[in-house]
Nucleic acid binder design. Structure first.
Lengths: 225, 225
DNA sequence: TTATATTTATGAAAGTACTCATCGTTGAGG
DNA sequence: CCTCAACGATGAGTACTTTCATAAATATAA
């Protein structure tokens, strides 16, 4: 979890970095808007921790750029200007949260975690396909009120089918999704067979249909019709 | 690997979709600029396959927006206008490649793969830390010309240390990186100990120092000094 | 220093993922 | 309809990952 701290008060930056480091954040520090942009162009961050009063301009101008160019990055504004006006302006412009100075490190910590969780909650929505339901919150899979005991890969594969229901997907696509990185033609995708087999078995054992249909030479799909 | 095809010739789109589908691409199709923007705002794509002559305007205007708002997405221009002028204009504006019509499906395929690979080559750079070298191309790890035989997780952990050399990283950060998704405080990070142990052992067996230093209560780091 | 709690290290065992060899299926062409 | 080749399914074996229990190391406080 990478955080870019944009703050000109060096003492505060150090405290934040030290504290957050303990809780599982990797922090980088810049002191003005120009440096912030340089960092943003070169690396990717999960969250930008943005002070509004900076030596070379208003933090809100950076917020604007962040929202248009790096929409995947979360923004937490921290500012001594606790005017309601400023707070609203920041949130209106798309900041994820606003933290008035001074604040406790514990609060900063929990707000950052909240932002991160909110943005990474891919599966937070409940997914439903016929009798199967995936609860986003608990990541539990139910079929007719029976809880399926799936391994991580099995869960990810089933979820992938449900997100992409009615769409045919090749072994390659599935393999890339499960392994998490690019796979060459030269790679073997045969391990997909095993996971398909296991999901089918577990669904069958719980009394479900074979929801996954094989398309010879094409791949697999879950059809709703 | 998701591709958005922006092309008003329906027959061509179908051929491309069918062919690419076989090679592991998931394709979506739109026929004009307006639809393309709607898709782009709603979903994320690895590559946009862009025709230049469209019913509601020049494809180059979309290219401009793509480069500013969706810089993570690759762009391959395909056009019947094979004027050198157009080709250069497209590449100047940041397209990843330009393919004159008509073209063979096999060529389209390999160009798309090339773009994808180029953009996803996180580890293509050679990393060096003291006697250890990671070859980006082959993903081989060498220590004094001895090749280390690392598992996937061990490799990823060592690479993570080398990318973040001199930086202290907590177990949590490392665990998140290795597992590939968000981990709660409630989760156990103890498996990190095993991978640390294994890497240390393999490096030692190959005649290297213990480059990974433990910071009690803080985490681990690889210090260069 | 000594006792105590916390953190890290380690070996063994359990659980999971992947490979391999083999067999069954599907569809194309004779 | 039969043959053949490509693809998919399956079980068993291997390699990898993670957990668990326990031991060692480190810090804190008496």
């Amino acid at each position: 979890m990478k955080v870019l701290i944009v703050e000109d008060n060096a003492a505060l930056t150090t405290i934040i970095t030290t504290y957050l480091g303990r809780s599982g954040f990797v922090c980088e520090q810049v002191t003005d808007l120009k440096q912030a942009l340089e960092k943003l162009y070169g690396f990717s961050y999960d969250i930008v921790l943005l002070d509004l009063t900076l030596p070379d301009g208003d933090g809100l101008t950076l917020l604007e750029q962040l929202k248009s160019k790096w929409s995947a990055t979360g923004v937490l504004i921290m500012s001594a200007k606790n005017a309601l006006d400023d707070r609203l302006k920041g949130l209106d412009m798309g900041a994820d949260d606003y933290l008035p100075k001074p604040f406790h490190m514990a609060e900063l910590n929990s707000r950052l975690k909240a932002i991160y969780r909110r943005r990474h909650q891919k599966g937070a929505v409940n997914l439903i396909f016929k009798e199967i339901m995936i609860q986003g919150e608990t990541k539990q899979v139910e079929l007719n009120n029976i809880v399926l005991d799936l391994t991580k890969k099995e869960f990810e594969l089933l979820r992938y089918f449900m997100v992409n229901k009615n769409r045919l997907m090749t072994k390659q696509v599935i393999a890339e999704h499960l392994s998490g990185d690019y796979m060459d033609m030269a790679d073997s995708f045969d391990f997909v067979y095993q996971h398909i087999k296991n999901i089918r078995r577990k669904i069958k054992d719980a009394g479900g249909q074979d929801y996954i249909s094989t398309v010879y030479g094409g791949g697999y799909k879950m059809m709703e019709s």
